[in-house]
Simulated scan of single mutants.
Amino acid sequence: MLEIIRSADRGQAQFGWLTSKHSFSFGHYYNPKQMGFSALRVINDDRVIAGAGFSTHGHRNMEIISYVLDGHIAHKDSAGNEKILPAGEFQLMSAGKGIQHSEYNASKTAPLTFLQIWIEPNQQEGEPRYQQKDFGQAFGLTWVITPDGRNGTLQIRQDAQVAQLRLTEGDAFELPVVAGRAYYLHLISGTVSLAEQTLAPGDGIKLAAIASLQGNVLQGPVNAIWFDLPA
């Protein structure tokens, strides 16, 4: 199984303070063919103007990941966490039985760009939990989220793993796949050839029932997010 979500086909939202592109149905964007993939429910590519942001609101039973591409997020939640999330860092908030939070652009002069990602948990009504970490800029595949938090990764309440993928122009690469799993790649920057398909920034690709997966970087540098998901 292979399906590409092209950047231009994503849902669009414009609220003045926020410009967002939705890979899957979200808010006012509804596409019955794109309701998520496996446990992956949301990938929003958000751009927030200086000084603006998402005011306090609630979530329940959702694993919410933020990955900052440019700028700083000012986070505050009802569990007492008040943090600044700079570019390059990952945040994982497990909403559990319920949490209120706000996410603002910490700058009064510069825009904020980040990915907002939701993954449905396999545990319900747990205690809310907050995690945040910078995993560096190493080339290749770096695991950042796992079910057991191994090797210093953030721990998610789902049989899922998330990695950052960084490559340079001309690189050939292979992504780890096993039978009985689903996979999704979201390309942030660069251009790659993967599974005989060309992917550009903002594109995503759904993959399942594949035995191996090789690719090449056509234009670098590449920054992408790789999801290993339950089938």
Rank of each mutant, 00 (worst) to 15 (best):
I225T: 02
G53W: 08
H57K: 10
H28G: 12
S193G: 11
A95D: 01
L165R: 00
A50V: 05
H72Q: 15
T168A: 14
R60L: 12
R10I: 00
P221G: 05
Q158E: 10
I210M: 04
D9K: 08
L69S: 03
P128A: 06
L69Q: 10
F54L: 11
F114K: 03
F114A: 07
F54P: 04
F37R: 01
D46I: 01
A50E: 05
Q34W: 11
S212E: 15
S78F: 09
M35S: 13
I5R: 09
P230Q: 10
N31H: 07
K83L: 15
G71M: 03
D159C: 11
V178Y: 10
A224F: 04
A52P: 01
M35G: 11
L40N: 02
G71F: 06
L141H: 03
L69W: 05
V217H: 01
I156N: 01
L229W: 00
G71R: 05
G11H: 07
S94M: 09
Q214L: 08
L18T: 06
G96S: 08
F54H: 03
L229Q: 05
T168Y: 08
A224L: 04
R60I: 11
I4S: 03
A208R: 15
A179E: 14
H101S: 04
F90I: 01
A13E: 13
G152N: 03
S212T: 13
Y183P: 00
G80C: 10
G126E: 14
L213V: 07
S20I: 11
I4M: 13
D228P: 00
R150F: 12
R129E: 13
S7R: 07
L213M: 08
V68F: 01
F26V: 07
W17I: 05
L207C: 06
Q161H: 12
N223W: 08
A208K: 12
S193D: 13
E169V: 02
M62K: 04
G140W: 00
S94Y: 05
A172E: 13
A163K: 00
Q219A: 12
A195C: 11
A208D: 14
K133S: 07
L115C: 07
L2A: 13
G27L: 09
Y104Q: 12
R10Y: 06
M35A: 10
W143Q: 03
R10T: 02
A200H: 15
E103I: 02
A50W: 06
Q100C: 13
A160V: 01
G98F: 04
A39Q: 13
Q158L: 12
D228G: 02
F114W: 08
G71V: 07
D203V: 06
G11R: 06
